[in-house]
Nucleic acid binder design. Structure first.
Lengths: 263, 263
DNA sequence: CGCGTCCTTGAGCTAAGTCAATTCGAGTGG
DNA sequence: CCACTCGAATTGACTTAGCTCAAGGACGCG
């Protein structure tokens, strides 16, 4: 329970590592911390989501030197667990995750779903320990960003510093909105808001805003929205009857976004 | 109703002011705090809450040069409003606040209560606009911390940089826990958790953990906990019947903290 | 000392939860 | 390729926690 005083074992010199190809992933096993190289931010398709837009070439080079490793996570496996020592933050490069907080009495709550381009692990900085479990909803890949090194970079690179503040602040705002949803909306409104929000995020990442595949179960959605899985299912059916939605299992087609918005 | 764009007149040169006593508060107001002399972080009784503990004297001096102004806010007045241009973050020096987010349809939700030592305004960094209203629950005083200057300081002062990350991360964790509360707990559990949490925070600030005065109405509590004011009232009465609590209007005495915890 | 705000309590209602019975569908193994 | 299995999803019937509406009481402030 007691937090360790020093939480960041100095990582090895970034420079030496970044230039080398990292050994291939061991087959089959899911060892934490296995990592592979060749992941340059400067060429990443999700760049716009993770980085400030106004970096110079030399600044990019510095970043590439630090964020040199990615890690594949299979569906159902955890990227980190509540209580793990915090060392790095992560960016989802491909796939998707859920973050789950657990109360000692076993109560569970999904605090968020992260898709490609989203950040993970920001909640660990405060206490030096991860505060939730991050679990892959499908086979996924994350970029590993050692936080101590990121902090150092931010001290030299103003746009990067500001960007990190913005990311954290945005997470605070996102959570405020979710609190509002949980505190004031009906089940119907929550589900509608959830779908529209997902749609917007998919669109922002270049996917279809109208038709998409849910990676999570009804139960996980319910756990995120503060309701039971049966209620989620009923709302899906209801929206379908009202011609707002076309839901076929996990495939969702939004028929009337405006209608959904004013539920 | 319409928020003014900026309600913070650019403070005069920090250096000149920080050494001078700040002008007296307008007559009539009964400001509930000690001497209004220079607002130096280095001598502030709430220091431990706002600052890293390991600053050198010269580092303190730099901070004192930036965080030079305080602002009194009367009960019911707003420190900032949703949509205001973000410029500064704030530390509550005395008194207390609530933060309220509002949905376009008029739905309102209280996202937090802040007491002395707490930070305000972290949610504005992301978008450059304040995301909620901050309203004083009693006559209060805040320290104004211009964010651009704070960022500059953080680039030079590693402990301060880390401290800001920690504060923001802790806010994310706090909100996660509140989401869990809203998503999974019964009304009874929410109220018990709320009271114990307040108690803990008062204790951490040197006030009694057992007996305290609520600054907010039942309605505001309900709005924070996602329930109606009548339900809040009923839970107070229930706890009183069960000898867990002694509630007399806004004065609360916690009789059986352990009992409350396992409700 | 009178008025408005806040709080308490009761009675009945309703949205969402619980429990249960099918149905669907993606994998798995013969 | 089909049968089988097991988790996921849907739907219905019934229950209940918390909401709504209403009335009365307490308190604090001008």
């Amino acid at each position: 329970m007691q937090a360790a005083a020093s939480r960041e074992p100095r990582p090895p010199s970034p420079r030496s590592v970044s230039m080398l190809p990292i050994q291939a992933v061991r087959s089959g096993t899911a060892m934490p911390h296995e990592a592979r190289g060749g992941s340059r931010c400067s060429t990443c398709s999700m760049r716009a989501a993770c980085m400030p837009s106004d970096l110079s070439a030399s600044e990019f080079a510095k970043l590439d030197a630090v964020i040199c490793t990615t890690r594949p996570i299979r569906r159902g496996e955890t990227l980190y667990r509540s209580g793990d020592t915090f060392q790095s933050i992560y960016a989802v490069r491909a796939g998707s995750f859920k973050t789950v907080v657990m109360h000692r009495d076993g109560r569970e709550h999904v605090t968020g779903f992260q898709i490609a381009g989203d950040a993970l692990g920001l909640d660990g900085i405060g206490s030096g320990k991860q505060n939730c479990d991050a679990i892959a909803l499908e086979d996924s890949v994350v970029c590993i960003i050692p936080f101590a090194q990121l902090e150092a970079i931010c001290r030299e690179m103003k746009p990067m510093q500001h960007h990190i503040y913005q990311m954290m602040s945005s997470e605070i705002v996102r959570e405020s909105n979710q609190m509002m949803l949980l505190g004031t909306m009906t089940a119907e409104q929550r589900v509608a808001t959830f779908l529209l929000n997902l749609s917007k995020r998919f669109k922002a990442r270049g996917f279809s805003a109208v038709e998409f595949h849910l990676r999570m179960t009804r139960e996980e959605i319910g756990c995120y929205l503060g309701m039971k899985l049966e209620t989620v299912s009923r709302m899906f059916s209801k929206f379908q009857r009202e011609r707002l939605l076309d839901a076929n299992g996990k495939t969702i087609r939004i028929v009337d976004a405006q209608g959904l918005a004013q539920v």
